[in-house]
Amino acid sequence: MLVIGVTAFATKIYFDVKGSVDKTYETVERQETGAGRDGKVNLNNKESFSILLMGVDTGDLGRTDTGRSDAIMVATVSPEDNKTQVVSIPRDTYMEIVGYGTFDKVNHAYAFGGPAMSMDSLEKYLDIPIDHYAAINLKGIQDLVNAVGGVTVNNDLAFTIDGIPFDIGQIELDGEEALAFVRMRYDDPRGDYGRQERQRIVIQGIMQKLISINSMTKYQSILDAISDNMKTDMDFATMQTIALDYRDAFSTIQMDQLQGEGFMQEGVSYQRVSDEELARVQAELKDQMNLQ
């Protein structure tokens, strides 16, 4: 009876997860940029891979259009080093928008051509293969934080936004608080870089909750939050391989920030990244992916 019960429960979880992942799957048609390795990544051989993480402003303040990728991170996952490197890309970074024939802010690539154009543009800019993407709307952040039971973050700036006060130090955030926390930038002397730092620590808090054994008791709420708010080109088999074979690579998560300097062009503000800073981040990501 016990074996039958455990088997039935495991089977239910399996099909629940598969059903939710199938809802998030959305394939992309890519352009060849010539960056990185030859051919696609082989996860069955436990090769290092990269994933573009995007938080889009669809679902924020009632928006329902395609939106722009206002939170942009590139994560490289190395099973050889048992480490994941996450680099934040300023949304106003001035770069070539591959496939659109122009230079513009990187976050406009998503509005112009969706995930594929964002992947192609960042692949050429960073000179590494961008293997996969996952895009979640901002309401999804709120739902996901609630689903995992809240997150704990270390806050280095006292501020109030939307009537919610945030104190300095270790604080607990529910979904509504987490969404306000990652959206604030105008009261931060660091501007958008401060906001990107808060985005990183909330993502890190969510990942720590997701890989904990306690998340199993909340798996249905987590699946609902993901399936309703996320799109990715990773199918169920791919996610299954990553979950089983790459788990140790998520035990150490290192954060970094691509730094630029603001400039104005035709009345629009951008961030220009120096050649030295871009080369530093490119070398870091290539080393992580064993492409050096």
Rank of each mutant, 00 (worst) to 15 (best):
residue 5 G to A: 12
residue 5 G to Y: 04
residue 17 V to I: 14
residue 19 G to C: 09
residue 19 G to N: 15
residue 20 S to Y: 02
residue 23 K to T: 03
residue 23 K to N: 11
residue 35 A to W: 03
residue 35 A to M: 11
residue 36 G to V: 05
residue 37 R to G: 06
residue 40 K to F: 00
residue 47 E to V: 05
residue 48 S to L: 07
residue 49 F to D: 01
residue 53 L to W: 05
residue 56 V to K: 09
residue 58 T to N: 14
residue 58 T to V: 08
residue 58 T to M: 11
residue 62 G to N: 09
residue 65 D to F: 04
residue 77 V to E: 03
residue 80 E to P: 06
residue 83 K to T: 07
residue 86 V to L: 15
residue 91 R to I: 04
residue 104 D to S: 15
residue 112 F to L: 14
residue 113 G to E: 09
residue 120 D to M: 00
residue 122 L to Q: 01
residue 126 L to F: 00
residue 127 D to P: 03
residue 135 A to Y: 01
residue 140 G to C: 02
residue 149 G to L: 05
residue 156 D to W: 03
residue 159 F to H: 13
residue 163 G to N: 11
residue 163 G to E: 09
residue 169 G to Q: 10
residue 170 Q to P: 07
residue 175 G to I: 02
residue 176 E to T: 13
residue 177 E to W: 01
residue 178 A to Y: 05
residue 180 A to N: 11
residue 188 D to N: 14
residue 188 D to H: 12
residue 192 D to R: 13
residue 195 R to I: 05
residue 198 R to W: 04
residue 200 R to T: 08
residue 204 Q to P: 00
residue 204 Q to T: 09
residue 205 G to S: 11
residue 209 K to R: 14
residue 211 I to H: 15
residue 217 T to V: 06
residue 222 I to M: 07
residue 223 L to P: 00
residue 223 L to G: 02
residue 226 I to Y: 01
residue 230 M to Y: 01
residue 236 F to R: 06
residue 238 T to F: 06
residue 241 T to G: 11
residue 243 A to L: 09
residue 249 A to H: 02
residue 252 T to N: 15
residue 257 Q to C: 08
residue 271 Q to D: 14
residue 278 L to E: 05
residue 280 R to G: 11
residue 281 V to Y: 07
residue 282 Q to M: 09
residue 283 A to I: 04
residue 288 Q to F: 04
